[in-house]
Design a protein around this nucleic acid. Sequence first.
DNA 1: AAGTTTACTCTACACTTGTAAAGATTGCAA
DNA 2: TTGCAATCTTTACAAGTGTAGAGTAAACTT
Lengths: 131, 131
Amino acid sequence: MTKKKHDLTEGEWAIIQAVWSNQPCAAPTVQEVLQSERAWTYSTVKTMMDRMVAKGLLKTERIRNLILYSAAVTRREAQHCEIMRAAKRAFDGAFTPMMQFLLDSNKLSKEQLTELETIIKTKKVEAKSKR
Amino acid sequence: MTKKKHDLTEGEWAIIQAVWSNQPCAAPTVQEVLQSERAWTYSTVKTMMDRMVAKGLLKTERIRNLILYSAAVTRREAQHCEIMRAAKRAFDGAFTPMMQFLLDSNKLSKEQLTELETIIKTKKVEAKSKR
DNA sequence: AAGTTTACTCTACACTTGTAAAGATTGCAA
DNA sequence: TTGCAATCTTTACAAGTGTAGAGTAAACTT
């Protein structure tokens, strides 16, 4: 299975997040879940979801008159594609400048910084042991 | 001046990168600069740039029959918006999980990790002194 | 069986983005 | 003055995305 590009639109992100959290689920369920943040009618949601099926982002299973949707893309895959896209657009595809930018631009708490530092130390050990 | 959202499309990113590198510059210049990576005609580029003017992403200065374009958005602003958008879509707006994801997903060299660690230490000092 | 509820299907419109050809204008060279 | 190059302007089409109403069908209740 070749690596597919999963470039999700704003609306698709909202929907697939709801699907990940509730799969397998029906379209009306997704509409209800998103109701509080999106003023979408069932009709809008259904259309978007069926288009996502056509794009290979969701898959369906029919049980009598009910259609259950599941994500055809993992959260990690989708996140990875989103980040790669951002890096490509804004940083010529380079992740390290992007991370540096993130660190420079955002007010992270000491706790968060410490946590990241710990992760980096771990990564350094892994990088070292793998060399 | 209120903080504007600068959500740039794929095409807009290519164009504004070229403008940042050559501003102030004319549309034909941008077309030539992008020629090697984008098979766009002058007409396409001009249309996109004029739309970007309408969206407040570029500004113009007319000298006789020549229109010179400059970016109305700094590279940092645009990069920031791109990252915030990615974070919002893929990480519910949270930067730390995004950062962790980046660290988990990319094979960084020891040197790169050290560099990031240094930045974090610097940020920790700043965060501490600001509290 | 009729009525109601739930979900699906069909259809359509508006806007954005990408793409670009054809025509018009300006400025310069011959 | 004419011709040409460079640039601008006008116009248009296609595909994707967002949005959703009206009609239809299935399942359940009375």
